[in-house]
Deep mutational scan, measured.
Amino acid sequence: TEYKLVVVGAGGVGKSALTIQLIQNHFVDEYDPTIEDSYRKQVVIDGETCLLDILDTAGQEEYSAMRDQYMRTGEGFLCVFAINNTKSFEDIHQYREQIKRVKDSDDVPMVLVGNKCDLAARTVESRQAQDLARSYGIPYIETSAKTRQGVEDAFYTLVREIRQH
């Protein structure tokens, strides 16, 4: 089974770092803004072998026109913010609204991801993020692309959301 996953969120929150940590098991430290990259990885989730087709997208506003296209083809979405960047957390709402509009559905598989949880300088409390996820009816997972904490959990949870859909 193949799953088309799309990673969305503001610029600099760590979308590529999360994806590369999942696929290649290493942490990319330097920031190089993405336009669009796709990665494929075969994994076993709950005993089922599946192929993850992951689209890593641009957070930069100037590429926002490309969003409709990949939102149409994606089956599930990782909505990523950084726990030390309140603005990126506030941006999640717009991504969710755009996904709902493009998919013409209120019920699209999504996982809210709070990345950079290895950093002490948190400005978005776990509780705020949990409340937001609960209001959307989606899971919330904290990750660190640096330490790998929660990385597999985030992507695998999204696959489970798609399966249950």
Rank of each mutant, 00 (worst) to 15 (best):
residue 1 T to G: 10
residue 1 T to C: 10
residue 1 T to R: 11
residue 2 E to Y: 03
residue 2 E to G: 04
residue 2 E to I: 04
residue 3 Y to W: 06
residue 4 K to Q: 11
residue 4 K to T: 06
residue 5 L to K: 00
residue 5 L to Q: 00
residue 7 V to D: 01
residue 7 V to S: 03
residue 8 V to G: 02
residue 8 V to A: 04
residue 9 G to D: 03
residue 10 A to N: 08
residue 11 G to A: 13
residue 13 V to D: 04
residue 13 V to N: 09
residue 13 V to S: 14
residue 13 V to C: 15
residue 13 V to A: 12
residue 14 G to R: 00
residue 14 G to Y: 00
residue 14 G to K: 01
residue 14 G to S: 00
residue 15 K to S: 04
residue 15 K to R: 00
residue 16 S to M: 00
residue 17 A to V: 08
residue 17 A to P: 01
residue 17 A to D: 00
residue 18 L to C: 07
residue 19 T to E: 02
residue 19 T to W: 01
residue 19 T to C: 08
residue 21 Q to I: 04
residue 21 Q to G: 13
residue 22 L to Q: 14
residue 23 I to Q: 07
residue 23 I to C: 06
residue 24 Q to L: 06
residue 24 Q to I: 14
residue 27 F to G: 01
residue 28 V to H: 05
residue 29 D to M: 09
residue 30 E to D: 05
residue 30 E to I: 05
residue 30 E to W: 02
residue 32 D to R: 01
residue 32 D to G: 02
residue 32 D to C: 03
residue 33 P to Y: 00
residue 33 P to Q: 04
residue 34 T to G: 00
residue 34 T to C: 00
residue 35 I to R: 02
residue 36 E to K: 01
residue 36 E to S: 02
residue 36 E to P: 00
residue 37 D to T: 00
residue 38 S to N: 03
residue 39 Y to R: 00
residue 42 Q to T: 08
residue 42 Q to I: 05
residue 43 V to W: 11
residue 44 V to D: 11
residue 44 V to M: 11
residue 45 I to S: 10
residue 46 D to L: 07
residue 46 D to N: 11
residue 46 D to G: 11
residue 47 G to N: 08
residue 48 E to W: 05
residue 49 T to N: 11
residue 49 T to P: 10
residue 49 T to R: 09
residue 49 T to M: 09
residue 50 C to I: 07
residue 50 C to Q: 07
residue 50 C to M: 07
residue 51 L to D: 14
residue 51 L to S: 13
residue 51 L to C: 10
residue 52 L to W: 07
residue 52 L to V: 14
residue 52 L to T: 06
residue 54 I to E: 00
residue 55 L to H: 05
residue 56 D to R: 01
residue 56 D to A: 00
residue 56 D to C: 00
residue 56 D to M: 00
residue 57 T to D: 01
residue 57 T to Y: 03
residue 58 A to S: 14
residue 59 G to I: 02
residue 61 E to V: 15
residue 61 E to A: 14
residue 61 E to C: 14
residue 61 E to R: 14
residue 62 E to A: 15
residue 63 Y to I: 14
residue 63 Y to A: 13
residue 63 Y to N: 15
residue 64 S to R: 08
residue 64 S to E: 09
residue 64 S to H: 13
residue 65 A to N: 13
residue 65 A to G: 14
residue 65 A to D: 09
residue 66 M to Y: 13
residue 68 D to H: 07
residue 69 Q to H: 11
residue 70 Y to H: 12
residue 71 M to Y: 12
residue 71 M to C: 06
residue 72 R to W: 07
residue 72 R to N: 11
residue 73 T to E: 15
residue 73 T to C: 13
residue 74 G to W: 04
residue 75 E to S: 10
residue 76 G to M: 13
residue 76 G to A: 14
residue 77 F to K: 02
residue 77 F to E: 02
residue 78 L to F: 10
residue 79 C to W: 09
residue 79 C to G: 03
residue 81 F to H: 02
residue 81 F to I: 11
residue 82 A to E: 14
residue 82 A to C: 13
residue 82 A to S: 14
residue 83 I to L: 15
residue 83 I to K: 12
residue 83 I to N: 09
residue 84 N to W: 04
residue 84 N to Y: 06
residue 84 N to M: 11
residue 84 N to V: 07
residue 86 T to W: 07
residue 86 T to Q: 13
residue 87 K to D: 09
residue 87 K to M: 12
residue 87 K to P: 11
residue 88 S to A: 13
residue 89 F to V: 08
residue 89 F to L: 13
residue 89 F to I: 11
residue 89 F to W: 13
residue 90 E to P: 06
residue 90 E to T: 10
residue 90 E to V: 09
residue 90 E to M: 11
residue 91 D to Q: 14
residue 91 D to E: 11
residue 92 I to R: 02
residue 93 H to A: 14
residue 94 Q to N: 15
residue 94 Q to T: 12
residue 94 Q to R: 15
residue 94 Q to V: 13
residue 95 Y to W: 10
residue 95 Y to K: 06
residue 95 Y to P: 00
residue 96 R to H: 08
residue 96 R to V: 15
residue 96 R to D: 01
residue 97 E to W: 04
residue 97 E to C: 06
residue 97 E to Q: 14
residue 98 Q to E: 14
residue 98 Q to P: 01
residue 98 Q to W: 15
residue 99 I to V: 07
residue 99 I to R: 03
residue 99 I to F: 07
residue 100 K to F: 07
residue 100 K to M: 07
residue 101 R to E: 05
residue 101 R to Q: 07
residue 102 V to P: 03
residue 103 K to C: 12
residue 105 S to W: 07
residue 105 S to M: 12
residue 105 S to R: 12
residue 105 S to E: 07
residue 106 D to A: 12
residue 107 D to E: 08
residue 107 D to V: 12
residue 107 D to C: 13
residue 108 V to W: 07
residue 110 M to A: 02
residue 111 V to S: 02
residue 112 L to M: 07
residue 112 L to K: 00
residue 112 L to Q: 03
residue 114 G to I: 03
residue 114 G to D: 01
residue 116 K to Q: 14
residue 116 K to E: 06
residue 117 C to Y: 07
residue 117 C to D: 13
residue 118 D to G: 04
residue 119 L to Y: 13
residue 120 A to W: 05
residue 120 A to C: 05
residue 121 A to F: 05
residue 122 R to M: 09
residue 123 T to E: 13
residue 123 T to Q: 10
residue 123 T to Y: 11
residue 123 T to L: 09
residue 124 V to Q: 10
residue 124 V to S: 11
residue 125 E to M: 10
residue 125 E to F: 07
residue 126 S to Y: 09
residue 126 S to K: 06
residue 127 R to C: 10
residue 127 R to M: 07
residue 127 R to E: 08
residue 128 Q to H: 10
residue 129 A to V: 09
residue 129 A to W: 11
residue 130 Q to E: 11
residue 131 D to H: 06
residue 131 D to Q: 12
residue 134 R to Q: 10
residue 135 S to H: 10
residue 135 S to Y: 11
residue 135 S to V: 07
residue 137 G to M: 02
residue 137 G to K: 06
residue 137 G to R: 05
residue 138 I to S: 05
residue 139 P to E: 08
residue 139 P to L: 06
residue 139 P to I: 07
residue 139 P to N: 06
residue 139 P to H: 07
residue 141 I to F: 12
residue 141 I to P: 01
residue 142 E to G: 04
residue 142 E to R: 03
residue 143 T to R: 01
residue 143 T to F: 01
residue 145 A to S: 14
residue 145 A to I: 03
residue 145 A to M: 04
residue 146 K to I: 13
residue 146 K to S: 15
residue 146 K to V: 14
residue 147 T to R: 08
residue 147 T to L: 09
residue 147 T to P: 04
residue 148 R to V: 13
residue 148 R to Q: 14
residue 149 Q to K: 10
residue 150 G to R: 05
residue 150 G to Q: 13
residue 151 V to D: 07
residue 152 E to A: 09
residue 153 D to G: 05
residue 155 F to S: 01
residue 157 T to M: 10
residue 157 T to W: 14
residue 157 T to L: 11
residue 157 T to E: 11
residue 160 R to H: 07
residue 160 R to M: 08
residue 160 R to F: 05
residue 161 E to P: 03
residue 161 E to K: 14
residue 162 I to Y: 04
residue 162 I to C: 05
residue 162 I to R: 05
residue 163 R to A: 08
residue 163 R to W: 09
residue 164 Q to F: 04
residue 164 Q to E: 09
residue 165 H to P: 12
